[in-house]
Write a protein that binds this DNA or RNA. Structure first.
Lengths: 244, 244
DNA sequence: CGACGCGTTGAATGTTGTCAAACCGAGTGG
DNA sequence: CCACTCGGTTTGACAACATTCAACGCGTCG
């Protein structure tokens, strides 16, 4: 068993309140402890600090315990593309598996606690724990379906629909973490939202004010209150992106 | 050993000329035979016929031996989104793993031969063949990076850049199959291209004629000749999408 | 032959991007 | 305390690119 700091209530996977999100349900308690033994809990990652950078050797995938992470990559012209936002209970870093090095960078949008899961040891462990192997296949597959929804969103929907969909998605992910699905704080900037959704900052801003004028949202900087969920769903005009 | 039809020169994985593309290189020959034993080779899939449909129970992933496959899904409003084109040597169908059912449909763009790889048996086999497990992790991760490049393309690039990028991508994939990288036939319609790239048919058509006027392409219906690869790369202004 | 699918072309429209300016809050230094 | 900068955000005017709508050409198939 790994040692446990008396101040932390989440120092083991078994006790972590996010475990229902990031672990396969099928694991027995003693199996959870096996996984727990390979998980590394580092120091908190402060805002704008990175968990890994594009080009780094791929060693681990990561689970968010608190805070928020954004992943992005920079192409040869120096243009940044935000590829995802990750909230507590979600796993990121799987992009690196194919090429043994990360093709994204991952930075903290706000101070975050993350668990590092060394992939090689996870692979070994998954040989004796088939449900763990399957879980990772599923996580990756989910990432694929998530990306495909995003592709659809980008190629078929208007600015307003894209933003409405993102808000509903964040709302659903909050609900999954037993937080409010109508009031929450956006961890990312307008620029990040625009970048992620293929829009300019100005357009994002205009849509936010538009939604406010329609009494669908109440926006105060990064604090969001969704006043009219059905209305927002109607505007989104899409299935909600999966909750990862 | 599975029986072999005397007319087919590709009835085993060991002999298939695509195996360097769809199998992990690390497999020993006798291990290839183990995999070969679980692979099911069906009848040819004729144009417009589907390998699976959205909602079907997920059982298998598939390797393209000849022809071409497109995957797409239809959202609740009935809008179709093409999510990928798959050429010989490439694997499709991994979308279904997360939810045990396919979230895409897969149809043949032209008569295709495909190998069905039952996923459950592949998972079992991969417990004794770690390089196979790793191969599948890599395939899925590659799918993720591919989708992320597409996301960047859709959210940051113009119609001309998107089409130039797709053409270069197809060119590179042909090269990988030891075919010409400058002359090839598009297996998909203009509508499919537009759908995939988030453009209308008209825009696709206009860009093709534009590229022709710039003497970068020679287009004759679906037959493409790239006259000026460097010029096309300059227009694309992107890294080529990975070759899967 | 006519119907149909597919692709091309033209003109008008509109959504989003671009450019520019101003706002706001937080922090800094005089 | 105030003036200042700075990053993030908002707003406006204008332009551009892609869409929409419409028509037409071309080949295939009944």
């Amino acid at each position: 068993m790994s040692q446990q700091c008396p101040h932390s209530t989440e120092a083991t996977c078994r006790d972590c309140r996010m475990n229902s999100l990031c672990l396969p349900i099928a694991l027995e308690l003693d199996e959870v402890d096996l996984l727990n033994d390979i998980v590394q809990r580092g120091h908190p990652l402060h805002k704008d600090h990175s968990a890994y950078n594009c080009g780094d050797e791929f060693r681990s995938v990561y689970a968010v315990r608190s805070g928020a992470i954004k992943t992005y990559n920079v192409n040869d012209q120096g243009i940044e593309q935000v590829t995802g936002f990750y909230l507590p209970g979600e796993i990121f870093g799987m992009d690196g598996i194919a090429h043994n090095q990360h093709i994204n960078s991952a930075v903290a949008l706000e101070t975050a606690a993350i668990c590092e899961i060394p992939f090689g040891r996870m692979e070994e462990l998954s040989i004796t724990l088939p449900s763990l192997q399957r879980h990772f296949f599923k996580l990756m597959s989910r990432e694929i379906t998530y990306d495909q929804r995003l592709i659809t969103l980008l190629s078929k929907n208007s600015a307003e629909e894209r933003i409405a969909t993102l808000l509903l998605n964040l709302s659903a992910r909050n609900a999954k973490r037993k937080l409010s699905n109508v009031r929450f704080r956006l961890p990312m900037s307008r620029a990040d939202i625009g970048n992620y959704l293929g829009l300019t900052v100005e357009t994002v801003s205009r849509v936010f004010t538009g939604l406010q004028k329609q009494a669908i949202l109440d926006v105060d900087k990064k604090e969001i209150e969704i006043l009219d969920i059905p209305g927002l769903q109607q505007l989104a005009n899409t299935e909600v992106l999966s909750t990862r």
